[in-house]
Amino acid sequence: MRVFSPALPLAVGYSGGADSTALLLACVEKWPGQVRAVHVHHGLQAAADGFASHCEVFCAQLQVPLRVIRVQASHAPGESPEDAARKARYEAFRVFAQEERAQLAIKSIALAQHADDQVETMLLALSRGAGLPGLSAMPASWQRDGLAYHRPLLQVPAPEIRAWLARRGAAFIEDPTNTDERFTRNRIRARLLPALAEAFPQFRETFARSAQHAAQAQALLLEVAREDLKALGNPPTIKALQGLSPARQANALRTWLRDFHQAAPSAAQLEQLLSQVAACTTRGHQIHLKIASGHVTRAGDRLHYTA
Rank of each mutant, 00 (worst) to 15 (best):
Ala292Gly: 14
Gly134Ala: 01
Gln202Lys: 00
Ala22Lys: 00
Leu193Tyr: 03
His304Phe: 07
Leu221Tyr: 08
Pro77Tyr: 08
Gly16Ser: 02
Gly33Met: 00
Gln276Thr: 04
Arg191Val: 05
Ala250Trp: 02
Leu270Phe: 02
Pro81Cys: 11
Asp83Val: 03
His150Ser: 02
Ala292Cys: 05
Thr255Lys: 04
Ala110Asn: 09
Arg128Gly: 01
Arg67Asp: 04
Asp228Gln: 14
Thr282Cys: 02
Phe4Pro: 05
Glu227Gly: 13
Glu29Lys: 11
Ala60Ile: 00
Thr121Val: 05
Leu303Lys: 10
Arg86Glu: 06
Leu8Trp: 06
Ala76Trp: 11
His41Lys: 07
Pro77Gln: 05
Gly284Lys: 08
Gln249Trp: 04
Leu303Ile: 04
Arg182Asn: 14
Gly43Cys: 11
Gln269Gly: 12
Ala92His: 07
Ala252Ile: 04
His41Glu: 08
Pro139Ala: 06
Gly43Val: 00
His42Asp: 06
Arg162Trp: 03
Arg101Leu: 06
Gln155Lys: 13
Gln155Tyr: 00
Arg151Ala: 07
Ser136Ile: 02
Ile106His: 04
Ser108Phe: 04
Ala73Leu: 02
Ser5Asp: 14
Pro81Trp: 13
Arg101Phe: 13
Leu8Ser: 01
Pro139Glu: 05
Thr177Met: 07
Ala292Leu: 00
Phe183Leu: 09
Leu229Gln: 13
Ser136Phe: 00
Gln63Lys: 14
Gln212Tyr: 01
Arg167Phe: 00
Pro152Glu: 10
Thr237Phe: 04
Arg298Tyr: 12
Glu100Arg: 13
Arg70Phe: 01
Ala214Arg: 07
Ala60Trp: 00
Leu104Tyr: 14
Asn234Cys: 09
Cys280Ser: 14
Ala26Pro: 03
Arg70Lys: 14
Lys30Cys: 07
Ala46Met: 03
Glu120His: 02
Leu196Met: 12
Leu257Lys: 03
Ala267Asp: 15
Ala264Asp: 15
Leu44His: 09
Ala48Glu: 11
Ala37Cys: 07
Val296Tyr: 11
Leu8Glu: 11
Pro9His: 11
Thr184Trp: 03
Ser275Pro: 09
Ala211Phe: 01
Gly243Trp: 03
Leu147Ala: 08
Phe172Val: 05
Ala252Tyr: 08
Glu82Trp: 00
